[in-house]
């Protein structure tokens, strides 16, 4: 496997003008004060070709800056960054030939014309072969079921359809590397599902490498192999998502719904944490192997109407990591 993205000790510092509270006219003649904001601090990341990576972080954690540095829109302050073996800033045009980007809030489709018209323009811009162009359009419209919709003016499409068209535009030239920044904001669950399906298909068929940022963490856990969590310009941690899920699902949360409003406390010689609520007993941090025993004990003790065993999902896990960091 070869590295498609190689970042070492990357930093980016912005200069931000400090607010001056002096009287308006006076402000014009005073020296401007600047404050340095370190958007990224010593970030080191390696991404293998063909990997799907979810970039996670609160607003302002440095996700967009990182993407801008990787696409060559921004110039680094310090450190090393290599995308497909090249400096993304110096070789921006060359790299862009093999990169696809969707910024959720911005469009690369012409509003007044049909998606097909815009795709034809992209064909000329990326110098795409006729055969590749045809087969890709066929493949994409099949996945999304949009054979007719792509001939409609973009203006008349729904938000979900527009985003699906944006994805077609980003993947049209068979890019090796694709960046998706918040592609599913405001979309309904079916559109989200269609997009997830499309991305997984691209991973298998085109061997694309994907960097995805979104605040919908379940989506990342569905699509991506690895999660990178950014916080305040640093990488908080990076981990394979399946590993992360299995580690955290060693412990369960067990909730009993009881017949009586309150029950006498049950004595168990275990280190569970217990909370009693009206009609409910909740056990946290129950090890997988002990769930059976616990249920037996409690059902013995009182009349139980319902039991639910909950694992923590990806969102909970990430939340746990980020809590206290705010």
């Amino acid at each position: 496997m070869n590295k498609i993205i190689n970042i070492e000790n990357l930093s980016k510092t912005y200069k931000v003008r400090e607010r001056n509270d002096a009287f308006l006219l006076k402000r014009f003649f005073q020296k401007k004060k600047y404050r340095e904001v370190r958007a990224l601090k010593d970030v080191t990341v390696n991404i293998e070709s063909g990997e799907f990576v979810g970039l996670i972080g609160n607003n302002g954690a440095g996700k967009s800056t990182l993407i801008k540095l990787m696409t060559g829109i921004l110039y680094r302050t310090q450190g090393k960054i290599e995308i497909m073996g090249r400096d993304p800033f110096k070789h921006r045009k060359k790299n862009n030939q093999e990169i696809g980007v969707v910024f959720g809030q911005r469009t690369q489709l012409n509003w007044d014309l049909s998606t097909m018209d815009s795709l034809h323009l992209l064909k000329a811009i990326y110098d795409i072969d006729d055969t590749v162009f045809k087969s890709n359009i066929e493949l994409f419209t099949d996945i999304f079921g949009m054979q007719k919709t792509i001939k409609q003016p973009v203006r008349t499409l729904s938000l979900g359809q527009k985003m699906q068209c944006e994805l077609m535009a980003a993947f049209l030239h068979n890019p090796k590397l694709v960046f998706l920044d918040e592609p599913t904001v405001g979309l309904d669950m079916f559109s989200k599902e269609a997009i997830a399906k499309f991305l997984i298909e691209m991973k298998e068929k085109q061997k694309t490498t994907l960097i995805l940022t979104t605040h919908d963490l379940e989506e990342i856990s569905k699509v991506c192999d690895r999660a990178i969590v950014l916080h305040d310009g640093n990488i908080l941690f990076e981990e394979n998502i399946q590993t992360l899920l299995s580690i955290h699902n060693q412990q369960k949360r067990v909730v009993f719904t009881t017949e009586n409003e309150s029950v006498d406390p049950i004595e168990l010689n275990k280190d569970f944490t217990v909370t009693y609520q009206p009609f409910k007993i909740i056990y946290n941090k129950v090890k997988k192997a002990e769930v059976h025993e616990l249920i037996a004990e409690v059902t013995n003790h009182c009349y139980v109407k319902d039991v639910s065993i909950e694992g923590s999902n990806f969102t909970d896990i990430i939340k746990e990591y980020l809590r206290g960091k705010r």
Partner: peptide
Amino acid sequence: RGEFDRFLLRPIE
């Protein structure tokens, strides 16, 4: 409008 970035993302001037 931040649209200039879009032009920088393509392989032509």
